[in-house]
Computed example of a mutant assay.
Amino acid sequence: MEALAKNTIARGSALFVFLDGPRNEDDRGLGGEIREYVSSIDGFQSVSLVEQSENIGLAASIIRGVSGMLERHESVIVMEDDLVTAPFFLQYMNDALTTYRDDEAVASIHGFVYDIKGLPETFFLKGADCWGWATWRRAWRVFESDGNRLLQGLQERGLLNEFDLDGAASYTQMLRDQIEGRNDSWAIRWHASAFLKDMLTLHPGRSLVRNIGLDGSGTHCHDVPAHLLVEADSRPLCVDRLPVSENTRARKRIIDFLRDQLLPHYTNGGIFLRVIKYLKSVFN
């Protein structure tokens, strides 16, 4: 919250904080602490707390929250509680939301990117993403909550290899895990929903988001390799209108990065399993 409040246009932004219901008695005390903290937040146009009386979990919290916001607003910027933003994150998001508002092929805007040198200032990739992102009401309508339907669509169109970044990522397995109840991922379904509609997400060439929930203290991610942790870049990003098509060079750079950094560790079981947990955490 402190980092978000330091954003250049925070005082013109309405902030909505979503608090899930308690899982147990210990959580009730934490809920009280969070309410007290939220009441002290300053630096925004307004601050609203949206609470659940019962615990509904990760996926339902995000899906209901985004859907509820988009019933009242044309667009929304979505942050989870373990993300720290750079000072120009909100400016980038708002600039991109305005620039591509009427482009039906654009599903969302994303704030995170791997630490890869030589990426363009901004670029499009097929699908969607989840670490500091934004979307519009028109795009969120394509979200499909049924993982089975999504997997069937990918299989029928022969898209599994492309969906898995030519084998460099394990998104299909994440989707299967969601179907089988082994994860509670809303994001793999958002990614697959946009992917099946041939929709694109705008990515930054330098990450404006840092994830601080990769230290083992959270629910969904533990023991992550240090070289995959990315610092948020403090410089502004220029959002110029691009042709609305996937940047194949940027896609290849990301595939090469994942293969170079992750796959050589396959024979080292401990490191490889930590890498898989990291990739899964991206879509949880």
Rank of each mutant, 00 (worst) to 15 (best):
S185T: 03
L202V: 13
W131G: 08
W133F: 15
L165V: 14
R157F: 05
N183K: 00
R138K: 15
D177K: 03
E180C: 02
D166T: 09
G132M: 08
W133K: 10
Q173H: 03
W140R: 09
T201S: 15
W190D: 13
S170V: 14
D146G: 11
Q173T: 08
D166A: 14
R137M: 13
R189E: 01
T172G: 13
Q152D: 07
Q173A: 05
L159E: 03
D146T: 13
D166Q: 15
M174T: 06
A168Q: 10
A134W: 01
N148S: 07
A139S: 15
S185N: 09
R149W: 06
L154C: 01
N183T: 12
I179R: 03
I179T: 00
A168P: 15
N183M: 03
T201A: 13
K197Y: 14
R189I: 04
G181D: 00
A139G: 11
W131L: 14
Y171D: 06
D164F: 05
R182I: 01
S185R: 04
N183G: 02
A168L: 12
M174D: 04
L202T: 05
G153D: 11
E180D: 00
A169D: 15
F163Q: 00
I188P: 04
G132A: 01
M199E: 08
E162M: 04
D177M: 02
R176D: 02
N183R: 14
R157N: 02
I179M: 01
L150Y: 03
R157Q: 09
G158A: 02
W186N: 12
N183P: 04
S193W: 10
A192W: 09
S145D: 12
A139H: 12
R182S: 00
L154Y: 02
L202R: 04
Q152M: 07
L196P: 06
D166I: 13
I188Y: 04
G153K: 04
A168S: 15
N161T: 10
A192H: 09
E144L: 13
D198L: 10
L200K: 05
G167Y: 06
L200Y: 11
L200M: 15
F163M: 05
H191N: 14
M174S: 03
Q178H: 10
N161C: 07
A168G: 10
A194R: 12
L160M: 07
S145K: 12
S185W: 06
Q155C: 02
